[in-house]
Design a protein around this nucleic acid. Structure first.
Lengths: 213, 213
DNA sequence: TAGTCAATAGCACAAATGGGGGATTTTTAT
DNA sequence: ATAAAAATCCCCCATTTGTGCTATTGACTA
């Protein structure tokens, strides 16, 4: 059974060219080409494509917003962005909108068919430069070399509860120890983190990912 | 000028096979093949490869750790992971270690040369399934739909300072208002966030990104 | 024009907190 | 075996905080 593909692209030349390439593939079945995202959305129920190739710069609704709406109504559709834009902003938004592929235009014909197959089979076709951008953003989020304040296990437990908003009493109850001990742990935590209040400790714990929320 | 490539791979068959493929490419120049990452690291200064193809499952130092060390000493080297592993854990660690490519073994010969070129020219070759994993992790980090607690601008200012760990007095001084007013604002903030202490407010503000740290 | 809301300011008081001293026991490492 | 580190518990006390009230001003709205 061929993969049902729809295309949204406002440039007529590019639209017919891309469409032609896909029609020549035996694995793909073009079920619709559209100039505007709104047109695809209104007809979507009738054609039910497996994969949508989506431009970003469109008249009317842009491709990112269209992707968000489509993904919202039809979570199983695979959306591959085809765009000349490769700035952080667009890439980021497209991913968050649920796109599962992002290719920089122009796309080589053979790459196009491969991308549709990739997307359909659970992969994420991406131009290498775009992938690099994603990786860079990824790194900027996650794994900033975090300092080691050498908190003991117990202290981390207490800090975790502080972050949850518990007061001394509650912490004592949850850990089956006296309030005095809780105070002692918290004092030690403050020492190690160089802070002087619960809110400072909580802030530092979350910002520096000492405690994983 | 050809791209200087080094390969670290413990399996002899795979090592000779991969090496052979690259030797047949005019764009690439194999400058070293290694069974252990330690061997590459100790010889690195003499051969200075542009791109390193790195296995993960190695005897001695694993490929992720080796990548971290290489990237640390030679930030310009491009490391492409070749691995049978495609679990979140390994992919995540490899990226954080500075890998700029990740291909699932076995790799098609023509893909291999393309990957080296991609990596060398600032791209990030990735198998589509791996890319999907990265995207999923990416999404899990970034953009959770945040609630609207309809804090006023002034309240957000105060909350920001709470998150910075300031106490009532300091906040009053910074905003040129009386402590009483600060208390009033904080009361209102607590109402709207449904919390009852500074630490809870700070925690909620950071976790739900009401305040952008 | 009356009503709502945000921002400002105040009073009072109990509870929670932070910091200053300790001490004892258990675990860990050398 | 012995020293160091972690975990436990206790006292005191000033300060900070949370929350119950009230009240004035200005800006916007129905």
């Amino acid at each position: 059974m061929p993969i049902k593909v729809a295309l949204v692209e406002d440039n007529i030349d590019y639209r017919t060219g891309t469409s032609l390439v896909l029609r020549h593939s035996t694995q793909c079945l073009m079920v619709g080409t559209y100039e505007k995202a709104e047109d695809l959305i209104s007809e979507f129920d009738e054609i039910l494509p497996d994969v949508v190739l989506m431009d970003i710069g469109l008249p009317g609704m842009n491709g990112v917003e269209a992707s968000r709406q489509l993904k919202n109504c039809y979570p199983n559709v695979q959306i591959v962005i085809l765009s000349v834009f490769e700035d952080d902003e667009n890439v980021f938004k497209a991913i968050c909108a649920g796109a599962s592929g992002y290719l920089k235009k122009p796309v080589m014909p053979e790459r196009l068919v491969g991308a549709v197959e990739d997307a359909y089979s659970g992969g994420t076709p991406m131009s290498p430069k775009i992938a690099r951008k994603v990786l860079d953003m990824f790194k900027s989020f996650a794994p900033t070399a975090r300092k080691d304040y050498s908190l003991s296990e117990r202290e981390k437990e207490v800090l975790k509860l502080l972050v949850d908003g518990d007061d001394y009493k509650i912490i004592a109850e949850k850990l089956f120890i006296s309030v005095h001990t809780v105070r002692a742990h918290i004092r030690s935590i403050y020492d190690k983190l160089h802070v002087h209040s619960k809110s400072q400790a909580v802030s530092k714990a979350l910002r520096e990912q000492i405690i994983h929320s």
